[in-house]
Design a protein around this nucleic acid. Structure first.
Length: 210
DNA sequence: ATGTCGATTTGCT
DNA sequence: GCAAATCGACATA
């Protein structure tokens, strides 16, 4: 059993274009992001990992979303802008959580990236995370993803077609049968919306939180 | 293996 | 004031 998925026969890694993010169905986008690669070139360090866990947050109509209401504040305003930017915010006062803003202007949808399978720059990730061993703890859990890739609040608003932080299609397709949906984590306060099956993982992949 | 607790920004009551 | 899209250190078993 190999430690990492094998990536093969792909000649070009395609950076996802703005059109990918600006579509109307955030739940579908959250599904499609599984198997894509989140890449960062931050502080001169190149790190990348395959996305293994996502959660969809559907704008003003979703009680679990910061933009529910609609709630427009200096922090959430970015989500009301057009898709293709990085919504980074501080959770519980210390964890930087990385989200992808989707949909068109005024539709405040976003996808939270919750876990990665490390691909490149693993040693850099270990240094940032202060981990001697490579285990799922390295990149499982949204706070750990940001920590491993060097994502901080200064990356709030970054253009995801830019040179610091982006997502690539490397030709990996997750079969529909291997796509697992469950309720989202840590949103008990959201009433009925807390039960929506909008958290997505890859069946059998060990690089997931919890 | 499981549980409690502290760190500490943002935004609502 | 308090709860939050969390995590890891530490305690106990």
């Amino acid at each position: 059993m190999p430690a990492f998925s094998v990536c093969c026969s792909v000649t070009s890694f395609q950076k996802l274009p703005l059109a990918f993010y600006r579509r109307d169905d955030v739940v579908q986008i959250a599904r499609e992001l599984l198997g894509k690669y989140l890449v960062s070139l931050i502080d001169g360090q190149y790190t990348a990992g395959m996305i293994t866990e996502t959660e969809a947050y559907r704008g003003a109509s979703d009680r679990a979303c910061h933009a529910f209401g609609p709630r427009r504040t200096p922090r959430t305003e970015l989500m009301f802008g057009p898709g293709g930017t990085a919504y980074v915010y501080l959770c519980y006062g210390l964890h930087h959580l990385f989200n992808v803003v989707t949909n068109e202007r005024d539709q405040a949808d976003a996808v939270l990236i919750r876990a990665l399978e490390p691909a490149e720059g693993v040693e850099v990730m270990q240094q940032r995370r202060k981990q001697k061993k490579v285990t799922p703890k390295l990149t499982a859990g949204p706070g750990n993803v940001s920590s491993a890739l060097g994502i901080r609040k200064q990356h709030y608003g970054n253009d995801l077609t830019g040179t610091e932080l982006w997502i690539e299609d490397r030709g990996i397709v997750i079969p529909e049968a291997d796509l697992v949906d469950t309720p989202r984590i840590g949103v008990d306060y959201a009433g009925d919306d807390a039960r929506l099956p909008w958290r997505f993982t890859i069946r059998g992949n060990r690089w997931v939180s919890r």
